[in-house]
Structures are given as structure tokens and as C-alpha cells.
Amino acid sequence: MIRPFEIRDIPTLHQYRQRGLFLDSVPTLTWGRTLVPMGAAFSPLSNVTGVFTSIYQDDSDPGAAPIVGQVSHASGASFARFTFIAPDAAIESPALSPLLEHLIQRVGARGAQSLVAEVDEKTHTFEALRRATFSIYSRQRIWRLAAAPESSGASLWRPGEAIHEFDQRRLYNMLVPALVQQVEPVHMGSQGWVLYEDGELRAFASVQTGPRGIWVQPFIHPEMLEVTARLADLIQRLGPKTARPVYICLRSYTAWLADAMQDLGAEPGPGQAVMVRRLATEVRKPVRQALPAINGGAEPVQHMQPEKLIHPARGRKQQRSRHR
């Protein structure tokens, strides 16, 4: 049986507090492993919070440990995130597939078209997600800084504002591969910092903060000068501490910044695969159109063109209704 998480399931979640598998780096590093699962406690408000938690219990074995899975989906976003599953051994359980399907139906109803997960590549979790039809669309390495590096003192970074969105989008489109843009468009505007040189946007950084850490994802033009010094200025502004470090995420298309991270004394984490499972499929239908007149007549011809995106869950419901 699979059902939405309920308040009575909180003791189960408490038992798994040290046994969960976390697949979304931002909340894990900024809020901590203890607080992330507790989003399940607000399950009655899932449509408001965007956090959806479900629980699987094997009906044939009442003594079997239940499995808890959670995904998050920001309102209006085209993708959802596979946040965590507990206990960690459940990632290789046959129950993973039906549990994921249940969670996918919940976020699919809100318009999510894909499900994203981040995982260390050299693990059983990576292989389990591949079997669950996840595929790699990018790679990343997360660098940790617990102390502010020395800075020049004069910083060109300033808080992002809505008026910077056009320049941010232009730089983003220039730097980020189309495959990544299709799955995971970055948030533009006021959430982060921007840097201009001679009137041109040379860099911006998406920043998310929490009680346990500060997450930074930089987008830097290759022609920007003094990259290490500029990054030091930004980190100085963010003020990392031992109890609240700064985490800098370098995707494969920004891996050239790794030398700057080493110069700043940052600690590299393991290489991770950023994986996606598509939740929607493009359906094509024939459209009849006339060819140009030949000998006074017109010949019809069929063209295939996209009709709409269909969620697997919705498609099954439509098929059942037609058979009634």
C-alpha cells in the first residue's frame, strides 16, 4: 500500500533520521539533514509548501519496515526534485518503482514535467536510479569554504534586481548547454548577486541561504578578468563561518573555475551526476495540408506536428475513461 504521509507517521520518520538518502543538495546543505525530512510533518499543506511525502508499506509483510519518499516542487516550475528516501537501503528495493510512480502522479498534477536527483556517481544509488529510468544531463562538484578568503576590499558585486534579469538570461543562454536549460532553468532576478564590467554583465551568482549553509551557483563569462579575486570578493560578502559554510556548486560547464576554488582554499566534494527522469511525453498527430496547385488541383499531404505534453499518469486516466 502506498499513501500520502500522515501525522501518525512522524515516529517512523524520527527512526530514520540517521538512515536517509538525500538527493537534493541545496536543502540538505543549507538546512541540514535533520530539518529536510521534517517537511513531511506539513503534509496536509503539501499544495502550499510544494513538499510531497509518501509512505510505502508491504501489505504481504506487516512486519516489514515502511519506506518514506519525498519530492519537492515549486509552484509553476517545470521540474520537481527527488529530495530523499528512507531508509537508505530502500533505493535498491523493488518498492522504489511504485513509490516513485505515486510521487510522480502528485507532482505531475501540478505541472512538473521532469524529476531531478543529484547523486555521487560511484555508488549503488547511481545504478539504482539508472534502473529507475533516470539519465544524466549534467555533472557537478560542490566546493566547501568555512572561512572567508582575503579580499581586495573593493568589490564590484551588487545584489541582483529585476532590472538585471534580461542581462542574466542572455549570459545564462550563452554559458549553459541547451539540454540543461530544458530541464532546469535557473531563477533570474533578485535572488543573488551580479557583477558588471564596463557596462556589461560579466557574472552572476544564484544564492540560497539557510541556517546550516549558503549555496552559491556562479555563472561567469570566460572573458572576465581576475576570476579568483572576484570570487574571493563575493565569498567575503557572504561571510562563511565554520557552522555556516559557503558551498559553491560547479557544474560541468563551469568546471574551469576549479583552479580558482583551489586557490581560495576550498575543499572539493565528490563528483556527482545530476540526473533527470522525464515525466511528460510529446505526442504528435497528423495535420492535413494542401500542396501548391499542380495542373489546376491541390494534393493533400500529412505533416506531423506536436500536439501537447502528456503525463503518463494523465494518459492512463484518459485511456480508462475511453474504455468505460
Rank of each mutant, 00 (worst) to 15 (best):
T28W: 03
T28A: 15
L29Y: 11
T30K: 02
W31C: 06
G32H: 03
G32K: 07
G32S: 09
G32R: 07
T34G: 10
T34W: 12
T34S: 11
L35P: 00
L35D: 14
V36S: 02
V36R: 03
P37T: 10
P37W: 08
P37A: 06
M38G: 04
M38T: 08
M38C: 12
G39V: 10
A40F: 01
A40T: 04
A41S: 12
A41V: 00
A41E: 03
A41G: 01
F42N: 09
F42S: 10
S43Q: 15
S43G: 12
S43M: 09
L45A: 15
L45S: 14
L45V: 02
L45G: 06
L45I: 08
S46A: 15
S46G: 06
V48D: 08
V48T: 13
V48Y: 13
T49F: 09
V51G: 09
V51S: 07
F52H: 05
F52S: 08
F52I: 03
T53D: 06
S54Q: 06
S54F: 03
S54I: 02
I55Y: 06
I55G: 07
I55M: 02
I55A: 00
Y56F: 15
Y56I: 10
Q57R: 15
Q57D: 09
Q57L: 12
Q57F: 10
D59A: 13
D59L: 08
S60T: 14
S60Y: 02
S60R: 12
S60V: 04
S60F: 10
D61R: 14
D61W: 04
P62E: 08
P62H: 00
P62N: 04
G63F: 01
G63R: 00
A65G: 04
P66F: 06
P66S: 08
P66C: 11
I67W: 05
I67G: 01
I67L: 08
I67H: 01
V68M: 10
G69D: 07
V71S: 06
S72G: 02
S72W: 10
S72T: 10
H73D: 06
H73K: 01
H73A: 09
H73G: 04
A74C: 08
A74H: 00
G76R: 08
G76A: 11
A77S: 15
A77E: 14
S78I: 14
F79R: 12
F79C: 10
F79I: 02
F79T: 09
F79M: 03
A80P: 10
R81I: 03
R81L: 07
F82S: 01
T83P: 02
F84W: 13
I85R: 02
I85A: 01
A86F: 07
A86T: 06
A86Y: 07
P87L: 12
P87H: 09
D88V: 12
D88E: 15
D88R: 14
A89S: 15
A90P: 12
A90S: 15
I91W: 05
E92N: 14
E92P: 02
S93G: 11
S93C: 12
S93Q: 03
P94S: 13
P94G: 14
A95I: 10
A95L: 13
